[in-house]
């Protein structure tokens, strides 16, 4: 499950920008804090890459899905190793 903490989210929508799988969408409603919360629209697309968890400035996102293939190696929870081969 992907959880968005309504108390912490400030509605910057950077999670939508950062997720390469377009998992998130914006709710049309405004909550009591005046925030248009994002919501998880396509959870099945998520690869648990962990980017949105790190990119959310307000520590509002928790990605809690069954483990992925790269997580078995050395218990490393961060990022698909295929992502980090980028040139420096």
């Amino acid at each position: 499950m992907i959880i968005i903490d309504e108390e912490l989210c400030k509605g910057c929508h950077l999670c939508l920008f950062m997720c390469y799988k377009n998992v998130y969408a914006i709710s049309p409603e405004i909550n009591k804090k005046g925030v248009q919360l994002p919501f998880v629209k396509f959870e099945e697309r998520c690869t648990k890459c962990g980017t949105c968890e790190v990119a959310c400035p307000d520590q509002a996102i928790t990605v809690d899905l069954p483990e992925n293939w790269w997580m078995k190696e050395g218990n490393d929870v961060n990022f698909n190793p295929n992502f980090t081969k980028g040139k420096k």
Binding site: L8, G11, C12, L14, V54, A55, C56, P57, D58, Q59
Partner: peptide, 18 residues
């Protein structure tokens, strides 16, 4: 102390996580 004082979308929060 949360939510922190940084404005919505300020990069400071993500840098804490990083």
């Amino acid at each position: 102390r949360l939510p922190h004082i940084f404005c919505p979308g300020c990069g400071n929060g993500a840098i804490i996580n990083a």
